[in-house]
Simulated assay, not measured.
Amino acid sequence: MGTREASFLLGISRQRLLVLLAQGRVKGAEKKGRFWEIPVSESGMPRIIPARRGPKGIWHHRETTVPQMIHVNQKQIISNKGKPPEKLEPVVSLKHNERNYYGYDLYISGPCQIVYRPYKPAKCGAHLWINTYHPVQFIDTQFNLDPATARQPYKQIKR
């Protein structure tokens, strides 16, 4: 059979079938000039040879050497005074891998360290912050006055 009929029977596009043919993954297929001849099995379908998967990825296998930094922004707390609940800005920030995440309430799922450095502040200017190597989960990223609904898990940042 030709590529059009084979792709229809297999339920894949003709282009995908041509890629499989070029890789030699269609059992018994031969190219005759410009056209492919694809044999069918007893079930009336072409046989596709499964591909081997590539090597396993190496990302996120090493322990991180840079901790996640949790900072409670004192200036934001002061500027939030007197504002109605819908105008409050997030006061807790999580800094990890050059990215910032903001919220009002978070959970640290492992040991952490509170760091106070009055003479050597962090890049953001903080003198007091929390470092952790464990996952951090924001519980509230939209200020919610009802604690029952504010406790819905929002986002988990993994190391």
Score class of each variant (00 low, 15 high):
Arg117Ile: 02
Gln152Tyr: 11
Phe8Lys: 13
Gly125Pro: 04
Thr64Gly: 12
Leu20Ala: 02
Tyr133Ser: 04
Ile70Thr: 00
Glu37Asn: 13
Ala29Lys: 02
Phe138Ile: 02
Gly2Asp: 14
His134Ser: 09
His60Lys: 15
Arg159Pro: 11
Ile48Asp: 01
Gly110Asp: 07
Pro84Met: 06
Thr3Ala: 14
Lys32Arg: 15
Tyr154Asn: 09
Leu94Asp: 01
Pro135Ser: 06
Met69Asp: 04
Leu128Trp: 04
Thr141Ser: 09
Val40Glu: 03
Met1Pro: 05
Gly33Thr: 05
Val136Trp: 00
Ile108His: 00
Pro118Gly: 04
Asn97Asp: 14
Val26Gln: 01
Arg53Ser: 12
Gly44Val: 07
Lys123Met: 12
Pro67Lys: 02
Arg99Phe: 06
Thr64Trp: 03
Pro90Met: 08
Gln156Tyr: 05
Gln23Lys: 15
Leu10Gln: 05
Arg14Ser: 10
His61Gln: 15
Lys120Cys: 12
Arg52Ser: 14
Glu42Arg: 10
Arg52Trp: 11
Leu18Met: 07
Gln137Asn: 09
Tyr154Val: 12
Val72Glu: 08
Pro90Arg: 05
Arg52Ala: 15
Val26Glu: 01
Lys81Asn: 13
Leu145Arg: 10
Lys155Ser: 11
His96Glu: 06
Gln142Ser: 14
Tyr133Pro: 00
Val92Leu: 07
His60Thr: 11
Lys81Gln: 15
Leu10Lys: 05
Thr65Phe: 05
Ile130Tyr: 01
Gln76Trp: 07
Thr65Asp: 10
Gln68Ser: 14
Ile108Tyr: 00
Pro55Gln: 13
Lys123Gln: 14
Gly54Tyr: 05
Lys32His: 13
Ala148Pro: 01
Asp140Asn: 14
Arg14Ala: 12
Ile58Leu: 15
Ser13Cys: 07
Leu128Asn: 05
Tyr116His: 13
Ala51Cys: 13
Gln156Phe: 07
Glu42Lys: 10
Gln68Met: 15
Thr141Tyr: 03
Ser13Leu: 07
Asp146Met: 04
Arg62Phe: 09
Pro153Gln: 09
Leu10Glu: 04
Pro121Ser: 06
Ala122Val: 03
Ile157Asp: 01
Ile77Pro: 02
Leu128Pro: 00
Trp129Ala: 02
Met45Glu: 10
Val91Asn: 01
Gly2Ser: 10
